[in-house]
Design a protein around this nucleic acid. Structure first.
Lengths: 245, 245
DNA sequence: CCCGGGAAGATTGGATACATAATTGGCTGA
DNA sequence: TCAGCCAATTATGTATCCAATCTTCCCGGG
């Protein structure tokens, strides 16, 4: 419903054979829009994140196809999307499994987060709205008052990801979001263990981080966030049993 | 051609309905093996990286299918793999384009590299073999003697990526490899410009980095590498015309 | 002369069907 | 009793066909 190249979509390319170019990269690592493959990917992603599927569990294409009322082709596309996000692992001529991380892989993820999340927080801090900061405070309270593991997990996830809301969606946001997803299961198991022995230090770090954010102090915020992620990583490394289940 | 779960593939899962789990995550973000979709993805990737396809250029499924002698379905799978790597951008019901980066996106990529590559180099340094270090020296020489842009690009890419060879393939390697790929075109254009005004500083940085690597000094190596990437980013930001082409 | 609207063509998304490779279970033999 | 091999079954990979959507070109109006 539009005209030549230059209007609805920026920057036609040089070759005459080319037509137009999709507008500002959505970077969804896949299709955007309301196609079946997207719906299926969404419901599968949700199922993996909330623990309905467990790491190492096999995903059969026909099962998903039957359950979603579609054929296997959109299922395959969905599986590829999730594979791109690291949530499932595909093996040629064999099938798909919910990605299982080893302790070493999980630690690597945390090492990456220690370097990237402070950068993203710094980028975000300049444009973070006061309303969002208020929401962060509420979430810190929710975590302290959280009764169960799931409530804590939800608040923790929203707390950290919301603190990055000031950053424009881009490569960094995508990488970090993916890491939160792939480690979700192991953070849940770890939280289960950590909740037993109390999480006062975690809550202190969150409060401290919130204070840095309120002061818009990027340097201090980076330091606290590194500390927070690093300490969690070191704690996690004390519980290798999580990964041998 | 193997037996029950526990032999060729580690760690059967807990549910009886599950079967087995793919061996140590290949993290190919897709299938591994010799299927058609993989072949097609490989040739398309090569074509994009060597500049046969330019950013913003449309990729038609039937073209690729006809050219590779397969049907459109493996082409679609290949496009999804490349989309996962960020090399192509898919839009629902519309098609696929070679991903085009804005200056801001490219700068973001460099900011991420500034934080991650030093970490990867540090990880690699412990296990880097002497033969590889010798190869690095040869590549530094090749860059200094490079006649054309393509020769420099090849040597530069192999120099840096080889310096990470001591690190086990994993998430970090994948992220960084992807970034080298998505920025390949823009680095080529930038190199074209930079070559005109000489690249003595670049060569000095490479020599210096090589020296740190020889001394296995991770701290110095990190610093030099940050400097190297950061300076390139700042130079790149002086040439926004590369992105408006 | 430029902009908006509409219809024909082209291209992608999805369903069904078939070929191929892997898994699973049983069978034979030591 | 158990290891190893073989065949039936299952699941994945691919090809072909049809429907839905978008692109493109042409036309009319301002």
């Amino acid at each position: 419903m539009s005209h030549p190249s230059e209007t609805s979509r920026p920057s036609a390319a040089s070759h005459p054979s080319e037509t137009s170019h999709p507008s500002a990269a959505s970077h969804d690592a896949g299709y955007r829009g309301c196609v079946a493959s997207h719906r299926i990917a969404g419901s599968l992603r949700a199922a993996i994140l909330d623990g309905s599927y467990r790491p190492g569990e096999r995903i059969r294409q026909e099962d998903i196809a039957a359950r979603s009322g579609a054929s296997r082709i959109p299922v395959r596309e969905a599986l590829r999307m999730l594979a791109a996000e690291g949530l499932v692992t595909l093996v040629a001529n064999s099938g798909a499994w919910v990605t299982r991380l080893t302790l070493a892989e999980c630690v690597e993820t945390y090492l990456i987060r220690e370097r990237l999340e402070p950068l993203l927080l710094r980028t975000s801090l300049r444009h973070l709205e006061d309303a969002t900061i208020g929401r962060l405070a509420a979430l810190a309270g929710e975590m302290e008052a959280a009764a169960g593991v799931d409530a804590f997990m939800r608040a923790d996830r929203e707390f950290h990801l919301s603190s990055y809301e000031g950053a424009r969606p881009g490569e960094m946001w995508q990488i970090i979001g993916r890491m939160w997803n792939t480690t979700q299961h192991y953070r849940r198991e770890f939280t289960r263990l950590a909740a037993a022995s109390g999480m006062t230090v975690t809550h202190l770090e969150h409060r401290l981080l919130l204070d840095c954010i309120r002061r818009r102090d990027a340097d201090d915020a980076e330091r606290i966030l590194v500390t927070h992620i690093r300490r969690t990583r070191l704690e996690l490394q004390k519980h290798p049993e999580i990964f041998s289940a």
